[in-house]
Amino acid sequence: MVRRDGASDTLVLASGSSARASMLANAGVSFTVEVAGVDEDAIKVAMADASPEELAVELACAKALAVSRHRPEAWVLGADQTLAFDGGLISKAGSVEEAWARLATMRGRTHTLHSGAALARDGAVVWSGVDTARMVMRQTSDAFLDAYVAEEGEAIRSCVGSYRLEGLGAQLFERVEGDYFTVLGLPLWPVLTELRRCGVLST
């Protein structure tokens, strides 16, 4: 693949997240997508004592390595996100009903999102990093949650917090402390810096 700046190194995004793909594309980064088939649940079990930040980075590394092992010539970007709330980790909701209940529990309270990223080449991680955002939810009504969940439908299950800040989900919050891109699932500024350092992007 030839990037718009004339270089020819290939960047592969090892994530099926449309939000991450949009962030990179909007920033002018050329890439292909190859979803990494990693057992996230097994990693979470193995790292039960790890911090949410460490887990986000480990998941990102696992994704990058899974693709890099059979695409050694490419730069592979893995990314993942964890949500810490009330002393534990929150995973994606298994149903729309579960998503509603989770949002109801989190309203009026604060949780943190940790977005990890890792860049691999030749089957080895060459860089990794993590950024954190603090999310303060407002005290929403049941009626608003009903309307929000109905608007999102099944798509709500694809988001770790059962919300998308780039849509109606913005109204769930009183304030957000941290970077917008981190909330969407990628610490974009550090990633762009590393891609320039590695020569994937022009300086």
Rank of each mutant, 00 (worst) to 15 (best):
V126Y: 02
V176N: 02
V96Q: 12
Y180T: 06
A124H: 13
A170H: 09
W75P: 03
G153D: 04
A124C: 09
E98G: 14
G108A: 11
R121T: 01
N26C: 06
D86M: 12
E194D: 07
R175A: 13
A93E: 01
E166K: 12
V12G: 04
P190H: 10
A99V: 05
S22Q: 15
G6A: 10
D122T: 09
H70W: 14
V136L: 07
A104W: 15
V136G: 00
A56E: 05
L119D: 02
K92N: 08
W75Q: 03
A62N: 11
L184Y: 04
R4M: 11
D9F: 05
A66R: 08
T182G: 07
S15C: 03
S15P: 05
A36G: 05
L65A: 04
E53T: 04
R102Y: 13
P72T: 12
L83N: 01
T193M: 09
D131C: 08
D142P: 06
D131H: 11
T182Q: 08
V125A: 05
A118Y: 12
E40K: 05
T105C: 10
S141R: 02
S128W: 07
V191L: 03
D5Q: 03
S8G: 04
E166M: 12
V45S: 03
N26L: 07
A64L: 10
W100G: 00
A27G: 07
R175K: 15
V38F: 06
A36M: 04
A27K: 02
G37P: 10
Y180C: 00
A133F: 04
L24K: 01
E174G: 14
S202Y: 04
T112L: 11
A124P: 00
L103R: 06
A120R: 09
A93N: 11
P187E: 01
G178P: 05
G123D: 03
A25L: 13
L145Y: 08
S30G: 13
S30A: 14
L186I: 03
A79V: 08
V96F: 10
R71E: 07
G161E: 05
T140L: 12
I43R: 01
Q171S: 12
P52H: 04
L201G: 02
P72M: 11
A104P: 00
E73I: 00
V12R: 02
V125H: 08
A21W: 05
S128A: 13
D146E: 15
S202C: 12
A7H: 14
E40G: 02
G37H: 11
M137T: 13
A21V: 07
I43M: 02
A7F: 12
M23C: 03
A36Y: 03
A124Q: 15
G6W: 09
R197P: 00
A143T: 13
A42M: 04
T82W: 01
V200N: 02
T203V: 09
M47N: 15
V176H: 00
R69Q: 15
L145F: 10
E54F: 08
S158T: 13
V191S: 12
G87S: 12
E98T: 08
S158M: 11
T105A: 15
I156N: 10
T132I: 09
S141Q: 01
L89W: 10
A101I: 00
E174V: 01
Q171E: 13
A120E: 06
D5S: 09
D86V: 01
A27R: 04
I43W: 08
N26E: 15
G94C: 04
G153N: 05
E154Y: 04
